[in-house]
Nucleic acid binder design. Sequence first.
DNA 1: CCATGCAGTTAACAACTGTTCTCCGGAATT
DNA 2: AATTCCGGAGAACAGTTGTTAACTGCATGG
Lengths: 208, 208
Amino acid sequence: MSHTPGVRQAQKLKTRRALLDAALTLLEEQSLSSLGLREVTRAVGVAPTAFYRHFRCTADLGVALVDEALGSLHPMIRTTVSDADDSEERIARAVELIARHVDAYPAHVRFIARERHGGVQRVRAAIQEQLGRFAREVCDELAKDPQSAGWSADDLLMLAHLYVDQMLVTASLFLEAPPAPSAERERVARLAARQLRLISVGRRHWRD
Amino acid sequence: MSHTPGVRQAQKLKTRRALLDAALTLLEEQSLSSLGLREVTRAVGVAPTAFYRHFRCTADLGVALVDEALGSLHPMIRTTVSDADDSEERIARAVELIARHVDAYPAHVRFIARERHGGVQRVRAAIQEQLGRFAREVCDELAKDPQSAGWSADDLLMLAHLYVDQMLVTASLFLEAPPAPSAERERVARLAARQLRLISVGRRHWRD
DNA sequence: CCATGCAGTTAACAACTGTTCTCCGGAATT
DNA sequence: AATTCCGGAGAACAGTTGTTAACTGCATGG
């Protein structure tokens, strides 16, 4: 039944977390396909063989990281989109929301950006599937908007993909920019805002 | 003076090409940060130490691949953009142009998409610099268009970046789709065309 | 309270990695 | 024709990798 958490499983989850965190740190300056099993265990301070108690291989660990990273990204997207119709301050708020998320989970964002086209097939597939799910959710959100009247389902999905891709591009730009108060960061924010604005303008005049 | 090509340099360039090609092939199912020096030389059929006659390390090889890959991508972008104003068939032609390029140089496209956010800093920087150059060229091209009257330089550059990113996204989608005559491929082409169209609509109504 | 389960350890394995040094043969230079 | 130059080969190095096996200790469930 596994009803009680137990000291046992608690410890297991703890080292699992440590493995994930260590991997995430190591992945800031390399890609998953070069991440060694021993490298991770060494960083955690645990025997190499302990790794197998949690993951079959580093690719499996990568898939787990995808779930975690996009799980944390998940709530953000809905908010971003439901805010990204036309109003100027709403766009600014959406961009700011992305910036805050990148600040809060930089390693997660970097991991997704890096492994989206990375060298490990299963991880790529996991990311693609999750991003597709996001696009469909965004699509649903857009459909609720009265501005979407007369739009075909296909066109809505195409716009949703545009938004999702744009969000990832923006997040990646924030990642490379120096943190909190910097001119570069403001530049990125303004660029992203204007790009979103242009897309919104295109959306408004789509039916011609 | 190095006036004559010579049998000597010809052979050197030949094995250099072999190294680059072998690396490009190996990089189809892994990323650069996990590409081993010996792995490449083994694929070519030369001694591991021969590698050093051409590159200091695999990162240097990666930078060379960036130049090569984006060199081949270079002429395409200008054509794509100078064709991507508003007319419907022009957009279709631009998308078809991207598709053809992906067919002609799939390994190059994959490499750029993969290493753009990959684990090797110098290669990332090289790609970013080249893409920035592309964006500026696209910007120049857009400026010539009478439709860009009244646009600020910043706004033109932001549109240029939008186009460049959109092109990479599209190229990456073509890469994953099955080759020549497939329904999936047509789906990607239509999606890309509509996204370009929406951007064009936004561009047309930007000054409001 | 005792027996089972299981996270983590230790040791060892063959295979692989990047790098250095020394050498060879043939093109290039004079 | 003699000499230099240099792309490549060969061997050896210390260090790393993933994976297996048999183990230890301790929380768990009967």
